[in-house]
């Protein structure tokens, strides 16, 4: 296998693996930019994967499955919003609780599906043979699941909303300083509910993109912790849609790397090192987290360099992230 074929395969697979991560991380970004931490991500993702798969089995249409997963995500979002925005329950507790309830529910409802051993249709694959000559990206562009286009459009819309629209500005204001936003006449409650519901809907779609395209099929524990990687990804991308998208594809490629490396002969010094063999997967599994820490550390260094400038902050997280808003309570900055 030539280096070119190796890289093409790696990119084609890695980018597709990044798609569920991208949906989930963008969903989390919507919620977090408005100041709500959505830890329900893993559970909602699993439930979405199951709903998408089950609905596709029932209707024979993967698009119905996708819609169903979206609907399940939206319902989970409404529930989460009611808890953390309406009732101002602690966001960490409520999010984790919902996540566990949802993943338990997915296991329970999914057992008959495992027993039934039926196969659901998959989302269509887009074939563009004319693009197969593009260097490195050829195999990916010429043949990929439609979820890639869907993910890229969600990314584009998210990026546009947060950079170009009034809604994006309002959501950011609510996430940074809810009291000020409230004083300006914005409805903190309504905006946060909207953000959580949209975000959670994206978790549902992330799940369906797994069970109907990227990891076709259903088994218990299908998501295997992807939701938590998406959570880290938002921090890695420093709450900006485009950096999050880049991170999703990068993380996808990193996940695939140790497997593909097993199929090639490497220079002798690597063959003899600990990087060879199954131990290497542990090392590479850590990489997303190591890279996230590196990004955070780098930001600290940059802030220190530009000490006089007030625009740079140590932490990119919205100031009100994780804090329920209560109009009567005093919120000091």
């Amino acid at each position: 296998m030539t280096v070119r074929v190796f890289l093409e395969n790696l990119l084609a697979a890695g980018v597709l693996r990044g798609v569920p991560l991208l949906f989930a991380a963008l969903g989390e970004l919507w919620a977090e930019r408005s100041g709500v931490l959505c830890l329900s991500i893993e559970g909602t993702l699993l439930l979405g994967a199951l709903a998408g798969y089950a609905a596709t089995l029932a209707t024979a249409s993967p698009f119905m499955g996708l819609l169903c997963a979206l609907a399940v995500g939206l319902i989970c979002g409404l529930l989460h919003a009611a808890l953390v925005v309406g009732l101002r329950v602690d966001q960490v507790i409520a999010g984790l609780g919902l996540s566990f309830v949802a993943s338990g529910l997915a296991s329970m409802l999914g057992t008959p599906l495992v027993e039934a051993r039926k196969v659901a249709a998959q989302l269509p694959v887009i074939a563009l043979p004319s693009l197969s000559a593009v260097p490195l990206l050829g195999p990916l562009l010429s043949q990929h699941s439609i979820v890639l286009e869907l993910a890229l459009s969600v990314w584009l819309i998210t990026a546009l909303v947060f950079s170009r629209t009034r809604l994006g500005l309002d959501l950011t204001a609510v996430g940074e300083n809810p009291s000020a936003a409230d004083a300006m006449g914005l409805s903190v409650l309504r905006l946060r509910v909207l953000a959580v519901v949209i975000g959670s809907g994206l978790f549902g779609i992330a799940g369906a993109s797994l069970s109907l395209a990227v990891s076709p099929g259903w088994v218990e524990g299908l998501s295997a912790g992807q939701g938590f990687i998406a959570l880290v990804l938002v921090i890695f991308g420093r709450f900006r849609p485009s950096r999050v998208a880049l991170g999703a594809f990068l993380f996808g490629v990193i996940r695939r790397l140790p497997l593909d490396l097993q199929g090639v002969t490497l220079p002798d010094f690597i063959e003899r090192s600990f990087l060879r063999g199954p131990g290497s997967t542990y090392v590479l599994d850590m990489l997303p987290y190591v890279m996230t820490m590196a990004v955070l550390a780098l930001q600290t260094v940059r802030v220190r360099r530009a000490q006089s400038e007030t625009t740079l902050r140590l932490d990119d997280a919205p100031w009100a992230l994780g804090r329920p808003y209560h109009r009567a309570a005093r919120h000091e900055r």
Partner: peptide, 19 residues
Amino acid sequence: VRWINAWVDPIREQEAAES
């Protein structure tokens, strides 16, 4: 051969097959 370092890991198993 692809070593996946797990008995059960749905996504890793699929990735190994793809690889």
